[in-house]
Amino acid sequence: MSSANTLTRITPKNITDQEFFYGHKACAGCGGSLAVRLALKVLGERTYAAFPAGCMAAVGFIYPQMAFTNNAIITTFPGVASMASGIAVGAKALGIQNFKTVAFAGDGGTADIGLQALSGMIDRGDDVLYICYDNEAYMNTGIQKSGLTPFGTQTTTTPAGKNIHGSKTQKKNLFEIIAAHDIPYAATASIGYPQDYIDKVQKAAQVKGPAFIHVYASCPTGWGTPTETSVEIAKEAVDCGLFFLAEYENGDYRLTRNPKQFASVADYLKKQGRFKHLSDADIASIEAHRDHKWERMRRMWNHQ
C-alpha cells in the first residue's frame, strides 16, 4: 500500500470530468448513486463494475437506457462478489492488463444474501474492490429490514407500534466481519465526508487483491428525509457517532475520525421519518450502544 502515499490525491479540482453513472433513474437525492458515481470517477474508464439486483441495477440498466458509460453488469442478488471475481479472473486469464473490477452492493446484498460469496472472494484473494453502499434497509423492494438496519428503525417489515418499536436488532458489525478475513484493505466511509470517501477509494484501488469499503449512503425515500439533506444527514450520522470512519490495513484497525464530542443522537434521529416513533428510553439505549462500541474501538484500535 506504500504506493498509495505517493499518488496524486484526487480532489474535485483534478478528478476526471467524465461521468460514468449518468441518466439513471434513481430517486432524487439518492445517496447510493452518489457513492457509485464518485467511486467510478476515481476508478476511471478501465473499470468493470458489477451490481447485484438492487437499486443501482434497477435504475441503471433499463433497456434501452444504459446509465453506465463504462463496462457494467447486473449480477444475481447473492452473486455480485463471485461474478466480479469471475470478471477479474477471466480478464486476467485473457491477458487483459491495466483494469480494475469493482462490485457495488447495498447493505442487504452485502451483509445478508451476498455475504457468503463476498467471504469467498476475499478468501481467494481476487483482485476486486467491493463497495457496500449502506442505506440500512432493502430499499429497492420497498424499505424492508436488512442485517444492517439499526435498532429502532421503522421499516415495512419492522413496523413501529405499541408492542415493538421498529427493528429489534442492532446493525451487524460488517466492517469487522470483513476485516476478520485478514483482507489487505478495508475501510468505512460516508457520503457525508465525500473527500474522505474518495481518498479511501483511491487507496483501495491500489490494492492488488481484495479491498472493501463500507460507505454510509442516505436514502431520502426510505429514511423519510428531504432530498436536499442527503449528504448532510450522512455526515450527521458520523458526527453523532452512530457511524464511524475507520480503516483496516496490514492487520491494524484505525479510526480515521475520532470526534472529541459527539453531536446529538436525538437530533440526528428525529430528522428522519424512520425514527420518529422512538421514545427517550429507545434513544438512550441507542446512545448506550454507541458508547459501548466507541469505548471498545478507542481502546482496541489506533486513533489520534
Binding site: 468493470y48 458489477a50 453488469i73 449480477t75 444475481t76 447473492p78 452473486g79 462478489a81 463471485s82 461474478m83 466480479a84 471475481s85 469471475g86 470478471i87 477479474a88 479472473v89 477471466g90 480478464a91 486476467k92 486469464a93 485473457l94 487483459i96 457468503q116 460469496a117 467471504s119 469467498g120 478468501d123 481467494r124
Partner: peptide, 27 residues
Amino acid sequence: NAEYMHVESEHSAISAAMGASAVGART
C-alpha cells in the same frame, strides 16, 4: 493453462463462470 477458482458454493461457481464469460473467457 487455466485459472482454477476455488469458489465457496455452486451458486458462486456459476456466477464466477458467467463473470468470466462476460469478458470473453471460455469457462
